[in-house]
């Protein structure tokens, strides 16, 4: 399902969402991230019909979802799957009955919905747990049941509300992997809200950062992680992409070079550049000793990216050539400071 949100506003006594515009194509995994109180839950509740926006429109699969009759809204709601933070399973129904529940509300024949539910339960990896009650299942298993329930109405849009908060990290990863597979297999659109960048980075194609009811940044996941523009985005990914020098070394950096100083460069490289021997080619070409102060290589989905902080003896002419070279190789480089001494020990107290 494609979702188009135009000029969405929501206000209770205070304004919670202002001027939200989003265009989510079919099959995309969109992460909506923000601190608590940013309005992300409200945005999701407007999308699943639990709240009515104060102004603006939501269009789901070319059908209007706002300002329509209750019956029209219900018809669309039945095509939307919801996964909640606390699973929200009915405690007195078995896993199978929970999955069948949406079809029971639609008064579908129990024979058909039963076999469909069985199929979905094995799709989410819960074969053999059909007749188990929720309180005998682990958190991860409960969330799997909830995902199966969200899918049984042939949902082509899945809305996930902080759905990993109640799970440990390993289990979260398993659930995220499951969602990623479902997205590939069934081509369902997934919108997930979270405050955890680690969740977003695992499977989202696009990320939209919400702060004080506004979208402050929206971009593909690689750009968000490597080149965050907004302060909020930066603070949200601080713990995820480590690209800063240790404090002890950072304090000894100088703003301006002196005659015998060493330049400290931060290099960002992604995809193909991550596979190239950039450092060794620099060493050969410029005959400069290069000292690696800090390094970090990582993957965001299929993209490899890295951050290196290196020290090169400062030389004005060489420096410009090196920067040009790096730019040619698609490596973004910036000089973050200078260290007073040349060569010798760069690390204080060592």
């Amino acid at each position: 399902m494609s979702v188009i949100i135009k000029n969405l506003k929501k206000a209770y006594n205070v304004v919670v969402l202002k001027d939200i515009n989003l265009d989510i194509p079919q099959g995309q995994i969109l992460g909506i991230i923000g601190k608590s109180g940013a309005g992300k839950s409200t945005l999701l509740r407007c999308l699943n019909g639990l709240e009515q926006p104060s102004a603006g429109t939501i269009t789901i699969d070319n059908q209007s979802f706002t300002g329509v009759s209750d019956s029209q809204r219900r018809r669309i709601q039945q095509k939307i799957g919801n996964v909640f933070q606390n699973f929200n399973l009915l405690s007195r129904l078995t896993a199978l009955e929970n999955v069948m529940f949406p079809l029971k509300l639609l008064k579908r024949s129990s024979h058909v919905s039963r076999s469909k539910a069985m199929e979905l339960l094995s799709l989410v990896g819960l074969r053999g747990k059909e007749h188990t009650y929720p309180n005998q299942l682990s958190g991860g298993q409960c969330q799997r049941v909830a995902i199966a329930r969200a899918l049984i109405g042939d949902a082509s849009l899945l809305l996930c509300d902080e759905f990993t908060s109640a799970l440990d990290f390993e289990t979260s990863l398993e659930i995220l992997e499951l969602l990623g597979n479902l997205n590939k297999q069934l081509r369902i659109t997934i919108i997930m809200i979270t405050h955890d960048m680690a969740v977003v980075r695992e499977i989202c194609d696009e990320v939209c950062v919400l702060d004080e009811g506004r979208i402050v940044e929206k971009n593909d996941i690689t750009s968000i992680l490597l080149h965050p523009q907004n302060m909020v985005t930066k603070s949200l990914i601080r713990n995820l992409v480590n690209k800063d020098l240790p404090h002890s070394l950072q304090d000894s950096l100088l703003q301006n070079p002196t005659a015998k100083s060493t330049a400290v460069l931060r290099l960002f490289f992604s995809s193909q550049a991550a596979g190239e021997p950039i450092i060794s080619s620099l060493v050969k070409k410029y005959d400069s000793p290069i000292n690696i102060l800090f390094g970090n290589l990582d993957h965001i989905r299929e993209t490899a990216f890295g951050c290196l902080i290196i020290a090169i003896p400062y030389d004005v002419s060489k420096m410009n050539a090196i920067m040009r070279d790096l730019d040619h190789k698609d490596v973004s480089a910036e000089i973050i400071g200078y260290l007073p001494q040349q060569g010798g020990s760069l690390w204080p107290n060592s």
Partner: peptide, 11 residues
């Protein structure tokens, strides 16, 4: 939360 499940399902 359970009541919201129903609402979100269009019950």
């Amino acid at each position: 939360g359970l009541i919201e499940v129903g609402k979100a399902l269009g019950a």
